[in-house]
Amino acid sequence: MWRWLHPYAKAEASYRLLSRLLPWFACSAVVTLLISLVWGLAFAPADYQQGDSYRIIYIHVPAAIWSMGAYFGMAIMALIALVWQIRTASWAIAAIAPVGAAMTAIALLTGAIWGKPMWGTWWEWDARLTSELILFFLYVGVLALYFAFDDQKAGAKAAAILAIVGVINLPIIHFSVEWWNTLHQGATITKFGRPSIANDMLWPLLLSILAFALVTATLIIMRLRNEMLFNEIHRPWAQAELGVNPPVAVSQQETR
């Protein structure tokens, strides 16, 4: 049943697949991002309490969701790399971590900018904010470990273990607003029952969440392709992809 998956363990096959997918992801990411942000910024109604400042939600919430989504994906790749020793999966750790870190940074910065006018402070050491900051440090730690060893395999293994251990932080981030008394508001969409947000605001938000998913996927695909080429640069297929004709063994034949 899963036989069709086997060829993609080879970097060359999955590189071709990613190259085919990339333009579709990139185009749909740009289009959905533009539509959702214009919709959220100009057409969605103002909030009755927060006025127009709430429009930061259209980048803050999707960035925060995918900072956690990317981490979950990275942890799955780490598990695959550790258990089945698939090299492509360990390269995916290095490809995903910077993208996830960027999403986390966006969520933290836009949260601070939103917090200043609404809460009266840029930063508060409360549960939601602190656990999201720890997520950022986890990404940085995974990246640092990955590149800290001369032996790349040892680095990938250490980074994979940290990535898996760090998964414990994901439920802490999600439930922090319920478990502790925080400044941050509770869940609006990801809860049981109807979302407590007006439809005029909900639709552009859902679209922006989709847009950020596509942006995250596009960046990960681009970075994973680079990782594959870098690690296989001595192989003819990678050299051909990089526009270098692989040297045919002519010179050796001449010497005989």
Binding site: L37, L41, D52, I59, L109, I113
Partner: peptide, 17 residues
């Protein structure tokens, strides 16, 4: 509505990143 600096700086920073 008076929050221009906050909203636009948040969007600008995100796009910069």
């Amino acid at each position: 509505g008076g929050y221009g600096l906050y909203v636009w700086s948040a969007f600008a920073l995100s796009f910069l990143i």
